[in-house]
Design a protein around this nucleic acid. Structure first.
Length: 583
RNA sequence: CGGGGCGUAGCGCAGUCUGGUAGCGCACCUGGUUCGGGACCAGGGAGUCGGAGGUUCAAAUCCUCUCGCCCCGACCA
């Protein structure tokens, strides 16, 4: 492509709306994308090229893994989501619309129902299984707050695959095949990533993993073991009980009330009673429900004073479909005193009590006394638990972070930020059960198909890669997804130089190299700045001095070194470099 | 959805408090000089001041409503 004929509107200054986010800023400045509305973007020629390359890698590996491409509609009749309850469950995130006959539709945020509907209409026998179908298609989610450019959009390109197996074991095999394909995809794209254990959320099912792309600006927190292969999203992470969590020496003193007037926070109480916060117990009060719009139920949870509560883990323990912290008025209405909530004498309105495993056997703890102005000291959690009877349970509900100990090997866990690039699940019969997707097995028995689903945010992956691949001057694309492989800059405009540049451009193109040929009548500085901003991996420069020696300059975008190579053999040499970089 | 901020030329911004001819830089067009890291000089084109209503002799500026976008949080199969 000749730059002079191209549509690459680079910006000299940072767009005001994108200063916070490197990938967003550089994709806008480099003329890759433009914003149309909140969470809605246009892909310009360069951006589309990158998107198509990621898509190509994904398609290639999906096909290689035995999945078959289909295209499902983005516009979906409401009946399918109504069948599984997600028409209500999805809430405001679902883009809903009506046709001229006033029938309900939505724009697909994900396609489990549509694909299950397709498969149940076709599959009758175990002989037709397994089958794995995928599509690469635009998804629509009315995010409450779209942000960070392509990283969190309302319209985004996603690859979603769905496997259908006759048995659990088969489903697990499909899952493993997809996991291996995902590894190849992320490696080929060229990003640093970690596969982490994930929460399965409201999708149902129990086995899932996320492919997290490491980036400072990531919205997800993950913990990774410093010694073994344990890695998990903090939502799903568990940790060994640390040494400091084991109770202080037993004093032999009896549990008793102590006045703590106006001391409500952990810090205030710990300071007032001269105990470390690790010897206090923090209470959290939640309202939750097990169906959309169900009557709220109340749960009280206890973690060590210095810990945070993992609400995702909590939600999982309560098998809740929704959950939120209780408001102050709701606390008082239930007979609870904010700041003084403890495990003793909890009102009957509290249906569930969860005690974090870390403190389940702790003694010598300071807990709330459930009366205003008082805490209890020398408390043994096991005794309190016993007194609570049926409604109390022990569970892993504390948030895990840096410094916690690996549940597998006990080494220190490290915390990182990540961008969720892919997520794979074994769904089991969650959808096939609700939608009656059945088959006859070898014995003629009717069984539910066992399902798995596998997503990759294709447009998000473009931005996530940019998030990792940039420096102070601009983007630094990996060869595998760069919009062009080579940036050819002609610095001089004499007829001989133009002819030489033209010749090299034609020769490279003939060798199958993707070249952006900067033939513009611009000063060198402008061309260098734009080349760095666009981030094309190899730069070939035709300057006056080197041309006189019959040489051209070759430089990698990520390197400072410049090589001089013979113009006569330049095309072959450069093509070889490109091929080598692609692996 | 709660909190905060911002909408003025393609981009970045000033002007708003204190009402009185719509400005600056970059980009763009023309001419000239330049030409290895975002050149210089001269001339020029380009704006319903987000929208609607109101106050006023007069509104980018004051008032009311409204739309949009960004940031923090909640949310995020």
């Amino acid at each position: 492509m000749r730059y002079s004929k191209s549509f690459i509107p680079t910006l000299r200054e940072d767009p005001a709306e994108a200063r916070k986010n490197p990938s967003h800023r550089l994709l806008l400045r480099g003329g890759y994308i433009r914003q149309v509305g909140a969470g809605i973007y246009e892909f310009l020629p360069l951006g589309l090229k990158v998107l198509r390359k990621v898509e190509g890698i994904v398609r290639d590996e999906m096909d290689r893994a035995g999945a078959q491409e289909v295209m499902l509609p983005a516009l979906v009749p409401a009946e399918l989501f109504k069948e599984t309850g997600r028409w209500d469950l999805f809430g405001s995130t679902l883009f809903r619309l009506k046709d001229q006959k006033r029938n309900d539709y939505h724009l697909g945020p994900t396609h489990e129902e549509v694909i299950t509907d397709l498969v149940r209409g076709v599959v009758r026998s175990y002989r037709q299984l397994p089958v794995n179908l995928y599509q690469i298609q635009w998804k629509y989610r009315d995010e409450a707050r779209p942000r960070a450019g392509l990283l969190r959009c309302r319209e985004f390109l996603m690859k979603d695959a769905y496997s259908f197996d006759a048995t659990e074991e088969g489903a697990l095999a499909s899952y493993r095949t997809m996991r291996a394909a995902y590894d190849r995809i992320f490696q080929r794209v060229g990003v640093k990533y970690r596969v982490v254990a994930a929460d399965s959320g409201a999708m149902g099912g129990n086995t899932s993993a996320e492919f997290q792309i490491l980036a400072e600006t990531g919205e997800d927190a993950i913990v990774v073991c410093s010694a073994c292969d344990y890695a998990a999203n903090v939502e799903a992470a568990v940790a060994q009980r640390s040494l400091s969590a084991v109770a202080a020496t037993v004093s032999g003193k009896r549990e008793s009330d102590i006045a703590t007037p106006n001391k409500k926070t952990i810090e205030e109480v710990a300071e007032f009673l001269k105990v470390p916060s690790t010897q206090t117990v923090k209470a959290g009060v939640y309202l939750f429900g097990q169906a959309a719009g169900s009557v709220p139920r109340m749960a009280v949870v206890f973690v060590r004073g210095d810990r945070r509560i993992n609400e995702v883990a909590l939600s999982r323990e309560l098998t809740a479909t929704w959950l939120r912290p209780a408001e102050d008025e709701e606390l008082s209405a239930a007979g609870l005193q904010a700041g003084y909530i403890g495990p003793r004498d909890l009102p009957a309105g509290v249906e569930k009590v969860l005690v974090d495993r870390e403190i389940a056997e702790a003694t010598e703890m300071v807990v709330g006394a459930n009366k205003s102005g008082f805490h209890r000291q020398h408390a043994a959690m096991a005794d309190a638990l016993g007194a609570l009877g049926e409604r109390a349970n022990i569970a892993d509900i504390r948030a895990v972070g840096s410094g916690d100990l690996c549940p597998q090997c006990g080494a220190a866990l490290l915390e990182y930020k990540g961008i969720e690039g892919g997520h794979i699940f074994v769904l089991g019969t969650h959808y096939t059960g609700k939608m009656g997707a059945k088959f006859l097995d070898e014995s003629g028995t009717e069984k539910l198909i066992v399902m798995g689903c596998y997503g990759i945010g294709v447009s998000r992956l473009v931005a996530a890669t940019a998030e990792q691949c940039h420096n102070g001057d601009g983007l630094t694309w990996p060869m595998s997804i760069a919009p062009y492989q080579v940036m050819l800059s002609a610095l001089v405009t004499t007829p001989e130089a133009v002819a030489a540049a033209d010749g090299l451009y034609e020769a490279l193109t003939a060798l199958g190299v993707e070249v952006l040929f900067d033939d513009r009548d611009e000063r060198p500085g402008v061309k260098f700045k734009d080349a760095d901003l666009l981030g094309i991996p190899l730069r070939v420069t035709l300057g006056k001095k080197s041309l006189e020696q019959g040489k051209v300059e070759l430089k990698a975008r990520t390197s400072k070194d410049v090589e001089l190579i013979d113009i006569a053999t330049a095309a072959e040499e450069i093509a070889a470099r490109v091929k080598a970089a692609l692996g």
